[in-house]
Structures are given as structure tokens and as C-alpha cells.
Design a protein around this nucleic acid. Sequence first.
DNA 1: TGTACATCAGTGAACGCGCGTTCACTGATGTAC
DNA 2: TGTACATCAGTGAACGCGCGTTCACTGATGTAC
Lengths: 239, 239
Amino acid sequence: MNAGVTARELARANLTQAIRDAARGQLAVQGAGHLSVRAVAREIGMVSSAVYRYFPTRDDLLTALIVDAYNALGAAVERADAGVEPDDVRGRWRAMCHAVRAWAVGHPHEYGLIFGSPVPDYRAPQHTVGPAARVPIALFAAVQHGVSIGAVLVADSSRGPAVPAALSAQMAVVIAEVAPGVPETVALRAAIAWTQLFGMVTFELFGQLVGTMDPADDFFATSVDLLAELVGIRPHPTR
Amino acid sequence: MNAGVTARELARANLTQAIRDAARGQLAVQGAGHLSVRAVAREIGMVSSAVYRYFPTRDDLLTALIVDAYNALGAAVERADAGVEPDDVRGRWRAMCHAVRAWAVGHPHEYGLIFGSPVPDYRAPQHTVGPAARVPIALFAAVQHGVSIGAVLVADSSRGPAVPAALSAQMAVVIAEVAPGVPETVALRAAIAWTQLFGMVTFELFGQLVGTMDPADDFFATSVDLLAELVGIRPHPTR
DNA sequence: TGTACATCAGTGAACGCGCGTTCACTGATGTAC
DNA sequence: TGTACATCAGTGAACGCGCGTTCACTGATGTAC
């Protein structure tokens, strides 16, 4: 026996995971709004009331799936980032963007769960915020590093319209939290790029490109490079 | 009596509209996936089976709402476009982008119906395609006009990476359909801007900016201008 | 190591609800002569 | 203009289904002495 781990605890951990997995499987069939405790129980050969020993309510199960999805996406992006030489900021940017899309395409229903239409009557609890922040944190970290080593155009970013006061205040909070030291104009462009990255992936995933740009591999790749230019990330010299 | 319009036909037209309206109202409460024929019937004081005289199935009702939503959005954008002097292409671009967002904010559930997570087991029939195309058609028409009067940078757009063959073929179709005569590089940038416009609105509407850039008025306005720059739309001289 | 009690996991029945859709029907509206 | 028949709109009951959640219960696992 492992130190202090009773058979009961082990069984509980296993079953909790089995329920999560079955529920994740259900997403594909039904969509997030129709996740059903009874269907999950059926799939793992349990009686529906037994599930309530593990998740006291349907919403708690939903929350667990949301946290899992954010973490899986965050981990995928961080892994992609780590696979590129740190000073190759444009390469990191590109890798992270493509990791987001690859994960989304590979897990469309989990992606839909976190970035799709809000589930009616569901309120995401506070502890989803941390996992949700992993991707923007990784993106901003790369930009911040780029600024510090001169791989991001700073002076040039000051062209364009003046930043309104309200927006400036919002940016100050973001900069303080995830990108200390990054000039406002650069951070603003990074924030816009972040929004548009996910917007683009969502747009594609929900079928809005079908009939025109779908399949969108090349379209997406071109967009990502254009976003990098927008942020002012220089191409890496040695590549 | 109006020529050939019987009381029965009139009553039918009225009730069909009343059902559409009630269903639209239901969207706000329930979300698209939970649209319920019985709830709609209840709201207009009808027995649920009576609704089937007007829409033979739940999906037909959904389709009607989708078509209505696309048309309402399309009309709003076309109206915004028409309110700007034709040669002020940047002004038109800006007006249309803001019209999209304004409509989305004003009709979040209808917007979610057409741009949100696909409703499980629902397939959009062919005749939703026309209404769905109104916004991209209007956007491309402005860009096309801009190219023809020199309000869009053409030469400068040829910087950036070469367009891969598959993407080039897709763009050729789009150009032939909605922007004849527009150079590939410009059309590609316009397509990217179109994608990102909706992506950004969707991202905001589904609550992804809450806690950072929300309320996003200034953020959106800045993004729209940046997208205009990306497409290469020159600021209008007289403005 | 062995026993007595407390904790927990899973069962099966039940509550109360809402859903889409069908069907035989009544009564009103329209049409042909 | 008036009558006879056909068409249509709306009713109410029913079918068969799935849902989230509760509750009293049995039996297995863990803990204290």
C-alpha cells in the first residue's frame, strides 16, 4: 500500500476521472448545453444517483470539464512555446497560435465548451479564471521577452491613433498582471492579436468559413503571420 | 378587402410572424439549443400542436429565426454603409464594423444563434446561405470600390509572404463571387479582416473579455482601425 | 490480531417536470355553381 | 345572392421519451481500541 492512500481513496480518484472522461465523451454527442448526468452514468455502467457521490450537481461536473479543457489547451500552448528557442519570438508566436488551432480542431467540443455560446443558467465559478489565463499569459510572456531583447518593434508601434483614456486604464491593469515593462502600444496590439487569434479559430470551428476559405490551414497560417507583423514581432535573424 | 388577400391569409401571415417573434423572445431565455415549440405556443396562448400548422417541425422554426437574424444583421450593415459617402471607404469600413458589433450587442441571442456553437443535430439548409452572405458582400464591395478609386493601397499589399497555391485557388473563387477585379493580396487581407471582425465580436459577446478589456468600446474601435490599416484602406482626405 | 462501530459507495424506486410530435375532432372560412 | 362542399385552423388528449435530484436502503471499507 502506498503511504496513506487507502483503497477507497484510490477507487474514488479513478471513478472521478472516469466520470470526467465519460462526460467529455458526451460533449461530442450532445453539445455543452445538453450534458446529462444520466447519460454519463449510463456510459460508465453506474446508476445515475451514484454520480452525485462525486459531483454534487450537474454544474459542478460542467465546471470540472471547463477547468480540464482550459488546462489542456494551456498545456498544449506552453508545450509548443517551450519547443522553440526563446529568442525566436516570432517562431514562438507562430508555434503558440498553431497550437491553439490544432488543439481546437482536435477537441472541437471541448473548445466549444470554453469559447462557445455561454451555457444558459450556468455561471463559471472563480477558480476557472486561473486555468483560463494560461494562454494569454504565455502569449504576453513571449512578447515581453521580445521587447526586452529587441525582437519587437517598439518605436514603430507608436504610429496609429492615440489610445483613449479608458482603454489606457484597462491596458495598465493587463500590463501590470501579465506583461510588466511592455509599452502600452505594444501590449495593446498584443491584446488585439490575442482576441483575433481566438476569434479566428472560433469562426472557423463553428463552420463560418465552410464554402469559402475552408479548409483554412493556409488561410490561418497567413493570418497568424500578419498578426505577428501587427504586434511588431520581427522575423528571427537565423531562420 | 385588398386584392386577393383573404382574411385567412392575413391571419396566417400575422400568426406566423407572432410565432417567429415569440420564438425570438425565447432565445433570450433559453439559448438556441433549447428553443421549445411548447414554450413558444404557451407564450402566444396557443396549444402546442397548433404551431405545427405554421412550422412543420422545430428545425423549420429554427431555420426561420436564423434567416431572420442574418437578414436583420445584413440590413443593419447595409444601412450603415449607405450612410457614408461612397468614396470615403475607410469611413464605410468603420461604419460597417461598428454596425456589426452594435447589432450583436443589441441582439446577443440572435447573434449567438448564427455565430455561436452549432446547435446539435441541426443542419442549416441551403437557403440560409444568401442572407448569410450579405455582410461579407457589403464589406468586399467597399474594398472593391476603394481599389477602383485608389483609396486602397494595392502595391504595398504585395509585401508579406507569397500566397500558397491552395489558398490562391480559394481566393480566386471568393474574388470572382464578391470582388471582381480586386488583386489577390488585397482580397486576402480583406478576407482576414472579415474573419477577425466577427471573431472579435464573438469573443467579446461570449464573455471572454470580461475582467480585462470589457467594456470593449475603445478596444473594438482601435481594432477596427487597425484592421482597416491591415487591408490597406487609406484615411479619407476630407475627413 | 480481533472485534465494534462509523463512514462511505452504490442501488433502485420515486417525484415532478418538460419535451416533440401525432391524431381524431370541431368549427370557421373560402370557393364553385 | 344563396347554398353545398372543400379546405383550413385550432383543440385536447395521448404516446413515449429523457431529465435532475432525493431518499431510504444494503453492503463494503476504514478506524479505534
